[in-house]
Simulated scan of single mutants.
Amino acid sequence: MSGAPAAPPARAAAPLPSIAATGWSRGLLETKTFFRERDAVVFTFAFPIVLQVVFGSIFRGAVPGTEISFAQLYTAGLIGAAVMGASFQNLGIGIAVDRDDGTLRRLAGTPLPHGAYFTGKVLNVLLVALLDVVILLALGVLMYDLKLPDELFRWATFAWVFVLGITGSALLGIAASGLPRSAKSASAVISLPFVVLQFISGVFVPFTQLPEWLITIASVFPLKWMCQGFRSVFLGDAGAALELTGSYELDRAALVLGAWVAGGLILCLTTFRWKGRRDG
């Protein structure tokens, strides 16, 4: 007596890709999308270069009392501004646009891990920031006789300032992406405070020419400490005399930047929204 045909064995469900794998794929997609937007590419890379050339051409010669040229001083500061621009500004605007056009809402309804979306964004930010730094340093060396450090500890300082600075700025950008009401207002809402922050953080205007209350405000935010850290790397001991305290205060810079990493993470976890205000 023959029995009923045996049911085929159930196939095991294929394991989902890891966050690292999907994050890498998202990073490639974000990078391809970024470089296809020619206007954004030109602005991101050309803006700090134009400022470097303009300020280097207007303010010639050495800073009084030092052998450091104004162009070298601006180059070191613009590196900090470029790193924060690539992270805070690009993420703040980009995520606001993704939220407004429904991209975030659609991604939230897919099996894509939420962490993969942010990993992809951060990978793109890292690439853009590193390219910005390399270009500014190359111009500084070729046009303004900027000396690259030959001491290992100064490159180590560059590494931790870069990592803490870009991490804190990226988290701040993710948190700030919820402020714009729409994609149209994102650029103004995110870019305006960043531009103001550059003027009060020692990027364009020396601290010695700023009122004390503006210095106090700038000291709260990461950009001042990023620029100060990068000046310590590329200007060395000679540049310390240009700081308000006669020192780069690297221990305090590490403390403030680390606090922004922790604070930015808390802000992101408590305020980030996948839906826009119009989505309910």
Rank of each mutant, 00 (worst) to 15 (best):
L255Q: 11
V189P: 08
E243I: 08
G173N: 01
T208S: 15
C227G: 11
S232L: 06
A186M: 05
L244R: 15
V233L: 10
A170T: 13
A253R: 02
L197C: 08
Q198W: 06
V196G: 08
L255N: 03
L179F: 13
I217Q: 03
F234S: 07
W213S: 10
R181H: 09
L250I: 05
A218W: 04
L223G: 04
V220A: 12
D251I: 12
L171W: 01
S191A: 13
T208K: 14
A183T: 06
S182P: 05
A183G: 15
A176R: 04
L179W: 12
E212Q: 12
L250R: 04
A254G: 14
A241C: 06
G173R: 00
L235D: 08
V256F: 07
E249A: 15
S187V: 11
S201I: 02
F207E: 12
W225F: 11
L250Y: 03
T208F: 07
D237M: 11
V205P: 01
F221K: 02
C227Q: 10
V196F: 14
V256T: 09
A170C: 07
I190F: 04
S182F: 04
V196C: 10
P193W: 00
S232V: 05
G229I: 09
Q198K: 04
T216K: 10
L210Q: 13
F207S: 11
I217L: 14
K184F: 13
A170S: 14
S185Y: 02
P193E: 07
E243Y: 11
L179I: 15
S169T: 14
V205Q: 06
P193H: 01
S187Y: 13
L172P: 02
A218S: 14
L250T: 08
Q198I: 12
Y248R: 08
P193C: 07
L214F: 10
Q209K: 14
V233A: 09
E243L: 12
I217E: 01
E212P: 00
Y248S: 06
A254N: 10
I215S: 07
T216N: 03
I217F: 03
T167K: 05
P222I: 00
A253C: 08
L255F: 11
L244I: 15
L235C: 08
D237S: 15
V196D: 00
G236K: 09
P206M: 10
A240V: 10
L235R: 07
K224L: 12
P206Q: 07
G173L: 00
S182D: 15
L171R: 01
G239Q: 11
S185I: 05
T245I: 02
F230D: 04
V203E: 02
V189S: 07
T208M: 11
A176M: 14
L179G: 02
A183Q: 12
D237Y: 05
S182W: 06
V203Y: 03
P222M: 02
F234L: 09
S177P: 01
Q228A: 12
L223W: 01
F230Y: 13
V205H: 05
D237T: 15
L179Q: 06
L223E: 02
L172W: 05
Q209G: 04
D251L: 15
K224Q: 11
P211W: 04
